[in-house]
Design a protein around this nucleic acid. Sequence first.
DNA 1: CCTTTTCGCGTACCGTTGGTATGTGAAGAT
DNA 2: ATCTTCACATACCAACGGTACGCGAAAAGG
Lengths: 199, 199
Amino acid sequence: MNVRVQQRERTRELLLRESRRLFATRGYGEVSLAEIVGAAGVTKGALYHLFQGKADLFRAVLEQVQQEVARTVAHTADGEDDPWTRFTAGCRAFLTASTAPDVQRIMLVDGPAVLGWNEWRAMDESGSAHHLADALGELIAEGVIGAQPVAPLTHLLSGAMNEAALWLAASGDPGSGLVEVWPPLARMLDALRVDRTGG
Amino acid sequence: MNVRVQQRERTRELLLRESRRLFATRGYGEVSLAEIVGAAGVTKGALYHLFQGKADLFRAVLEQVQQEVARTVAHTADGEDDPWTRFTAGCRAFLTASTAPDVQRIMLVDGPAVLGWNEWRAMDESGSAHHLADALGELIAEGVIGAQPVAPLTHLLSGAMNEAALWLAASGDPGSGLVEVWPPLARMLDALRVDRTGG
DNA sequence: CCTTTTCGCGTACCGTTGGTATGTGAAGAT
DNA sequence: ATCTTCACATACCAACGGTACGCGAAAAGG
């Protein structure tokens, strides 16, 4: 029980890689299963042996993308000591990470439409949005921001940052776009603080 | 040249009504053209005579939904005199209007995926986001909020409210959900003011 | 009026799509 | 050495979006 598991995993990763590339560049609706299995060098039999269908394959890809983003955000945040700095650094990391084309199309555009908003939201909450909620909870516990329910706040900020990521990716250079988007976002974040000493 | 134009318009509105209903309840991908024309009591010949295809039909439906929301927002905002009150009232109107199921699915979930984010954004900017940008521009001109580029700010707020609308519609009763979402959003809006005297 | 043109729409058809049923041959178990 | 499992290929299907064309009534022209 070794060669088989290895081969299975290898085929699965091939399918994930190729379908992710195709979904990212042309969108879920415009990519056929024939293309995917062709690019991966297998057949539909393999695909349906490993996944339940097209939507399930997409879900696996989305899961992968989401975990990558979440890991990047978490890694950046963990590098900071001060809770507030950790929070803002995580937000900025999310913005830059979500500028990548595959993240854009798969996670932010096609995700909700293919899986439905409820399932997409559930996945998001176990991904980067989870870290966001954690950071907000910590800030509340330490009294940096006022006591309040974290869920609505998380969604507001998450929505704002998702849209901001899409916008700055669409408007030419993401680097210079960030200079435009970050100040108002930083001000919004700063407005949460109970004791505003910074600008 | 009268009966023909009337009949054409009537068929078009029938197709728009039925496809809107189906798209809203089951989503763009799960609705077939056969279903749509069946519900409308016509055939595919009529559909392709009036629209360029499935995506074009969806675009027409989305345009309709968006204009309805924009009109509601504009109507609510125009009822207020003070620019700041007009702004916040418009935001609240958008939130409540975007809680309707057809607005949710068609405008916020499927829209970007079917038309692509760029085209969706272009349509949104000629809809309710346009009013939002107008209100922000006015507030800047009157010195209520600091001088800054309106575009990024518009996108941040638009994204936050879109997500908030989806969230409060998904979490049971929208009425009680609004009570949860509005305070943090109001605080975010209030943080934009140069001179913060209110809470 | 009668003829001709226009055009809104129905009918019949096509290539492609996601999905399924079944075959096959090698890896693993006994 | 035989049997079972299983990763995957092959062949096939109904349904889909889209197209070509035909029909009949309304408009236009004389």
